[in-house]
Design a protein around this nucleic acid. Structure first.
Length: 142
DNA sequence: GCCAACGTTGGC
DNA sequence: GCCAACGTTGGC
C-alpha cells in the first residue's frame, strides 16, 4: 500500500469543495506534468493520500482515497494527460503546515520539503504516519 | 508581487 | 542531443 500527496491551490479546488463531493469523489484533473501523471498511473484503488493546500494555507488539511484508477483527463483532448479520481476520507484535526513539516527532522527527505514544485507526489509510510501524528489523527486510515 | 527552481519547447 | 529561451509553480 502506497501513500500520496495531492497539491491544490484552494482558489482552484479546495478541501471544502472536495468534501462537498462526498463518496462520489472527483477527477484530479488538470495535471500537465509527466512526473505527477506517472505517479497517478501507479496508484491503486483504495490507496490514501494527503490533500495539501498550496499558496494559501500551505498545509496538509485532509486525507483522500483513490476511488478510480488512471483514466483520460476529461478536461483535455490531449491523450497524454490522464488522472485518477479521489474522494475525501477525513479532516486533519490540526492542519500540518509546511513550516511544521520543514522543522521536523523526521521529514527532512519528504518530497514536499525537497521538491516544492511536484504537484502529485509519493509519501513514505513513516512520513505518512508522522504527518498524521502531528495533525492529531490517532487512527490514520491505511 | 517577486523570484528561484524546475519543466518544456524548439532551434541548431 | 544539447542548450537557450521561455513558461509555470509555489514559497516567501
Amino acid at each position: 500500500m502506497a501513500y500520496w500527496l495531492f497539491k491544490s491551490e484552494p482558489d482552484a479546488w479546495s478541501w471544502e469543495q472536495q468534501k462537498a463531493k462526498g463518496e462520489a469523489g472527483e477527477e484530479w484533473d488538470g495535471i500537465r506534468n509527466y512526473q505527477a501523471r506517472n505517479n497517478m498511473r501507479t496508484m491503486k484503488l483504495g490507496e490514501k493520500g494527503f490533500f495539501y493546500h498550496s499558496n494559501e494555507g500551505k498545509a496538509v488539511v485532509g486525507i483522500v482515497e483513490v476511488c478510480k484508477e488512471i483514466h483520460p483527463d476529461s478536461t483535455t483532448e490531449d491523450e497524454r494527460w490522464e488522472c485518477v479520481d479521489v474522494k475525501a476520507v477525513c479532516d486533519m484535526p490540526k492542519p500540518v503546515t509546511l513550516p511544521d513539516a520543514k522543522a521536523n527532522p523526521a521529514l527532512a527527505n519528504m518530497v514536499l520539503v525537497v521538491n516544492t514544485r511536484l504537484s502529485v507526489q509519493p509519501v513514505a509510510e513513516d512520513e505518512y504516519l508522522e504527518i498524521c501524528r502531528m495533525g492529531g489523527l490517532d487512527n490514520p486510515p491505511r
